[in-house]
Design a protein around this nucleic acid. Structure first.
Length: 379
DNA sequence: GGGGTCTGAGGTACCACATGAGGTT
DNA sequence: GCAACCTCATGTGGTACCTCAGACC
């Protein structure tokens, strides 16, 4: 399933670990680069260090490139909703004509604190962030949690309230039981694998989709950035994903009625990547780590029983970012395959075998290699 | 109100085959 | 370690078919 996604967008990053870990704690992936300290920091360390003093809070920081995760981001690609360093931006957006059309804006350094009390010198809260040139960092406090919940109440409500009746009738569904209510059969526990301790994730897959214009480095299958439509299972995935995040941050993972401690994955389709294979959650890293997951060799999934305020804030922020970034269109990952599919003969919508005549007709206007088909158009 | 039928919307299985990942030599 | 070769899972789109909900009688 993920066979063709097992490479990072730069072709060689197959590790389950971050490209660059936090210079301070050495245990989590870095998310920001502090110019003043010349240090790459994870979200937790960034908050801790730059909350320590007023002076520290004035340090200019840059988001780390979401592609290579090893250099400060310089541009925000609006199409990919990704912050990229100059190198990755160049690589990705020179891959094909469509990629070149992506609108990018420079990312300026930000100061202040991402979490906690706003800096007194930044009452506006205007900083430069990964989601906009002049994104307003929303300083999250416990009170803000409530504000967020109120803002999103309408949408979130549909995610939060499981149907207890269906749950009872759905006893055979271990996942349904696990979450205390009706759960989509198209489970995608994506975001729940994104804690810093977790080494398993489908980040490669996510990244490849996010940066689906960047595959020139590993083959001719250049993906196209155009997104057509999104199948309902993907929509379910997003809905459930966000619902889970919302539920988690709402409860701080200490509500035993909504989330139990373990889950059986045996009934899940292999293609579904349960992100929540964490051993524990001390989450502050806003991005899922790289790598894929082994559903059947992983230890039983445990849900956290406590979540620190910082973790909650991080999750709230991540929830909102993800909500903003939701896309419901289908992603074409392999343009060459699409091109072939478009040109294949069909019978009642099904692919049909090519006859020699059919091939000749089909490619009568295309250059045909000896004994083969035409050159794969590349986007 | 209950049951049967019709209709539309939405979801999915099916097909062939180039491609690429991973294993072997 | 590297290259060449081999094997096999994967992704791709249009259509028919299936399921379900709602309307109607």
């Amino acid at each position: 399933m993920l066979k063709e996604n097992s490479r990072g967008i730069h072709g060689g990053n197959t590790s389950n670990h971050w490209s660059r870990i936090c210079d301070t704690c050495q245990s989590a992936g870095c998310t920001v680069y502090c110019r003043a300290d010349s240090a790459y920091l994870c979200t937790g360390c960034d908050a801790r260090i730059h909350r320590a003093s007023h002076e520290a809070s004035l340090h200019e920081r840059m988001w780390v490139c979401e592609a290579c995760e090893s250099a400060p981001a310089a541009f925000l690609c609006k199409a990919d909703a990704a912050s990229l360093c100059t190198t990755c931006d160049s690589d990705i957006h020179s891959a094909n004509p469509l990629a070149r059309r992506h609108q990018r804006v420079p990312i300026m350094p930000f100061t202040g604190m991402l979490y906690g009390t706003p800096s007194a010198t930044h009452p506006s809260g205007l900083v430069m962030g990964p989601t906009g040139v002049a994104a307003k960092i929303e300083f999250l406090t416990q009170d803000d949690d409530q504000t967020i919940l109120e803002e999103d109440e309408d949408e979130a409500a549909s995610w939060l309230f499981f149907n207890p009746v269906k749950n009872i009738n759905n006893q055979s569904n271990s996942i349904g039981q696990f979450f205390g209510g009706e759960v989509d059969k198209y489970l995608d526990l994506d975001e729940y694998n994104s804690c810093q301790d977790n080494q398993f994730s489908n980040q490669d897959n996510n990244q490849q989709q996010s940066y689906n214009v960047s595959q020139k480095s590993h083959g001719s299958d250049n993906a196209v950035p155009i997104q057509y439509r999104k199948s309902t299972d993907q929509i379910h995935n997003h809905g459930f994903q966000l619902r889970m995040e919302y539920e988690a941050m709402k409860n701080g993972y200490d509500n035993p009625t909504s989330i139990s401690d373990t889950v059986s994955l045996s009934s899940l389709d292999v293609g579904v990547v349960p992100e929540y294979t964490m051993r524990e959650v001390s989450v502050s890293h806003p991005r899922p780590p790289k790598g894929t997951i082994d559903l059947f060799s992983s230890p039983p999934i445990s849900m956290p029983t406590q979540l620190s305020p910082m973790d909650r804030e991080a999750r709230v922020l991540r929830y909102r970012e993800k909500k903003k970034a939701r896309k419901f269109e289908k992603t074409i990952r392999y343009a060459s395959r699409k091109a072939y599919a478009d040109t294949r003969p069909r019978i009642k919508g099904r692919f049909a075998k090519r006859t020699d005549e059919g091939v000749d007709q089909m490619f009568s206007t295309m250059p045909i290699e000896e004994g083969g088909y035409g050159i794969v158009p590349s986007f």
